[in-house]
Design a protein around this nucleic acid. Structure first.
Length: 740
DNA sequence: GCGGATCAC
DNA sequence: TATGGTGATCCGC
């Protein structure tokens, strides 16, 4: 682990400081060599390190990519987008200055002759993936074939064969299923397994499970893979990338190991942080590692949205999902085609008809109807435009799709296009199938049978030395605190680590699910994450109410800030995360394709319970306005009266008088949701004529009990008649909001 | 709700 | 000569 980390750190971090290395850093706009070596300013994703690319001559890659690209329309469009990113960076920078001023201070085995030779799946216009011999030259997925060939003269192009990939993919799944029935297939060549139970039952380590799985995959397919083992999927995923191809990495299941690991981890390694986000964080705040995310938490809090901020913080805290997979319902379905750029409107019509046809077929296959149709266009200069309509009725037929798509397109012509696409969304019935993220938070909160402040087993409490024990460069929160009298900064960290191991699987080769032939024909694979085989087995509940599965450390973190902002307004912000001891111990595995690797994740699970920032307060205050939007002010005041006359109150300011759930006053948004929940129940009872919620005399307690049980099982199935009296709160709101 | 953008694979 | 397709999500209107 250490060698890996030191290598990664020097790669990413040092590039900022040393001039000679800055040559490789395309973000250094003011490089003195700019005119001599113009390719240095061409920001390309192809330089981002990918497995098997150690020792690549980056200078050469960058130069070739630049030389082959410059002057093209694509290139010009990239420059345009680059300029926009620059603007965003400038804007963030100036904001940052203000804040500071304010004191806030599978192929080879079948064709042996190809073994050991550089190969790429794809053609001259685009390649899908490349083997490790090719990667040594800088060739990689998503690179145009003509550039790849320039980098590697002897590159052998092979045609994709999705039938074959599906076959092998299914074989690997058969193996995974033996270790975790409910494994998550993220694509054809990547999967997450929860191997906690296997480890415990057989008293073996995550490493052993990973070895075993990789071995079995090889036996069955003769394909190698890589794996990573860790306490949650975020970490398992990162780990699976470390020793590929054909290797594995286990992150020790200890808090110190995890914190060391995460703090040195370059942010770009984290799934969800891409080229742009990396630049934002690096150029504005100098953040390059996940540890930096916590060091800069105040600036992040001030500069980014609550959603981004919570995401960044959870990354810095190594918090990642390890809970059972969710059967996410599909939210949209689309079809798009690229062709030679043209202005020929009869050609557009022909394409549009083909697309409408294909989309109608796909919709019919899944029995879907949608009411939002989106037309996507890419101009000859690579600019992407979308145009959407939301209809009053649901559509799915070719004729309906074509009718509305044609109207959308008509408003855009004349213009030169290289791509047309159609998408349908807002499906009929989808409001019953999904819960919004915030509601999931409430659900998970209700699932706890102890107050977050009263959970037993807290063994370790440290005041922010714990955080400072992580490597950092900048001033500690304490110094900020001292510098500004208006600030009341407090950070407490109570640590306790569970034992959930996650294994993540990722193929070393095959990656992209779709591929366009040179003749323009597109081969589309099925979305394997929708594979019915991975679904429908989620009924079984892992947790039993009232049972504590893990006696151990309890962790929670509270970031709190009070003070006066630059405008003189008082504010208070707070972030609270906790690792609950209710968590059933588990292990998750991430495995990778032509090669496979297993990693062990450290076993703690945590959830951001609450985050009330400056912006959040506004959100919390307005959260009841959902009723205004939906039903009218009159109904809202009526409902509020209902709530007031229902003897609803917070006993001792933390216990709900209706259902007994304990919610500390600090968790404002959670409380708001909880109140809304009871409010909705009252409204439901008042408007019993809706027919969705049968007349009943069940106590709130009983209803919530059912709700908890259902959600605990991890299912997101459509409501059966039996469940009619357990209509999710969101279904109630959504139904009213969208009823025509 | 719309449109642009980012991200993963 | 030449830079993909599908789906999700977020942000700022």
């Amino acid at each position: 682990m250490q060698p890996h980390h030191s290598r990664a750190a020097s790669c990413d971090g040092d590039a900022i400081r040393h001039d000679d290395e800055a040559a490789f850093n395309c973000h250094q706009k003011q490089s003195p060599h700019k005119d001599d070596k113009p390719w240095h300013s061409y920001d390309t994703v192809f330089l981002n390190a990918k497995a098997g690319m150690d020792g690549v001559d980056k200078e050469k890659v960058q130069k070739v990519v630049y030389e082959m690209s410059k002057g093209s329309r694509y290139f010009e469009n990239e420059k345009r987008k680059e300029a926009v990113v620059e603007q965003r960076i400038d804007r963030l920078r100036s904001q940052a200055c203000l804040i500071t001023a304010a004191g806030l201070a599978s192929l080879e085995k079948e064709n042996p002759s190809l073994k050991g030779k550089p190969m790429a799946v794809g053609g001259l216009s685009m390649i899908c993936t490349a083997n490790y011999e090719a990667r040594k030259f800088g060739v990689r997925a998503a690179m145009p074939g003509f550039i790849a060939r320039k980098l590697c003269q002897d590159l052998i192009f092979v045609r994709p064969d999705f039938e074959k990939y599906s076959k092998y993919s299914e074989l690997t799944r058969q193996v995974f299923r033996e270790y975790d029935e409910r494994f998550i297939a993220r694509s054809m060549d990547e999967a997450y397994l929860d191997v906690t139970d296997i480890c415990r039952e057989r008293t073996i380590s995550g490493a052993q499970v990973a070895e075993e799985i990789r071995h079995h995959v090889y036996e069955k397919t003769k394909l190698t893979c890589s794996a990573g083992v860790g306490p949650n999927r975020l970490l398992a995923k990162v780990c699976s990338d470390i020793n590929k191809p054909n290797g594995q990495y286990v992150l020790p299941n200890e808090r110190s190991a995890i914190m060391n690991f995460i703090s040195a981890l370059p942010i770009r390694k984290v799934s969800g942080i891409g080229k742009v986000t990396e630049r934002m964080l690096k150029d504005v705040l100098g953040i390059s590692t996940c540890g930096d995310l916590l060091q800069n938490r105040y600036m992040i809090s001030a500069l980014f949205s609550p959603i981004s901020r919570d995401f960044f913080f959870s990354v810095g805290l190594a918090i990642g999902g390890s809970e059972p997979p969710q059967d996410e319902p599909r939210k949209s379905l689309s079809n798009e085609r690229t062709f030679m750029a043209t202005t020929d409107e009869s050609f557009f019509s022909k394409k549009l008809e083909e697309l409408a046809e294909a989309l109608a077929v796909d919709m019919a296959k899944e029995g879907l109807q949608g009411r939002t149709l989106t037309l996507k266009l890419k101009t000859a200069s690579f600019e992407v435009r979308t145009r959407a309509v939301s209809l009053h009725q649901y559509i799915f037929s070719k004729s309906d799709i074509l009718l509305h798509a044609s109207k959308l397109l008509k408003a855009e012509v004349p213009l030169s296009l290289r791509l047309i696409g159609l998408r349908l969304a807002n499906f009929k019935g989808e409001m019953f199938a999904c819960l919004s993220p915030s509601q999931r938070t409430l659900a998970s909160y209700l699932n706890q049978n102890t107050s977050p402040y009263k959970t037993p087993g807290v063994t370790d409490i440290c005041e922010y030395e714990t955080m400072n024990s992580m490597p950092h460069r900048e001033s500690s929160p304490k110094s900020i605190d001292q510098d500004n009298e208006n600030e009341d900064l407090r950070l407490s960290f109570k640590a306790h680590v569970g034992r959930r191991l996650n294994l993540s699987y990722k193929s070393d080769g095959l990656q992209n699910p779709n591929y366009k032939h040179e003749d323009g024909q597109v081969v589309t694979s099925k979305r394997l994450d929708r594979d019915p085989l991975t679904h429908g087995t989620l009924q079984q509940s892992l947790l039993k109410p009232g049972e504590t599965y893990l006696a151990g450390e309890e962790a929670s973190i509270v970031l709190q800030r009070r003070g006066i902002d630059s405008c003189g307004s008082h504010f208070e912000s707070k972030l609270c995360a906790s690792w609950d001891s209710m968590e059933k111990p588990s292990t998750s595995l991430n495995v990778d394709a032509l090669t496979c690797k297993a990693e062990s994740e450290m076993g703690f699970r945590s959830s951001l319970l609450d985050s009330i920032g400056i912006e959040d307060q506004v959100a919390a205050e307005s959260s009841t306005s959902i009723l205004q939007i939906d039903r009218s002010t009159h109904v809202k005041s009526e409902a509020t009266n209902l709530l007031q006359t229902s003897s609803f109150t917070w006993i001792e300011d933390f216990r709900c008088s209706v259902c007994g759930i304990e919610v500390p006053a600090e968790l404002i948004s959670i409380r708001q949701e909880h109140e809304d929940y009871h409010l909705a129940q009252l409204l439901q009872e008042e408007s019993g004529g809706m027919g969705l919620w049968s007349n009943h005399n069940d106590s709130f307690q009983k209803q919530i009990g059912k709700r908890c049980l259902r959600e605990e099982s991890g299912t997101r199935r459509k409501l059966s008649k039996k469940d009619a009296n357990c209509l999710p709160i969101d279904a109630y709101f959504v139904k009213n909001r969208f009823s025509p």
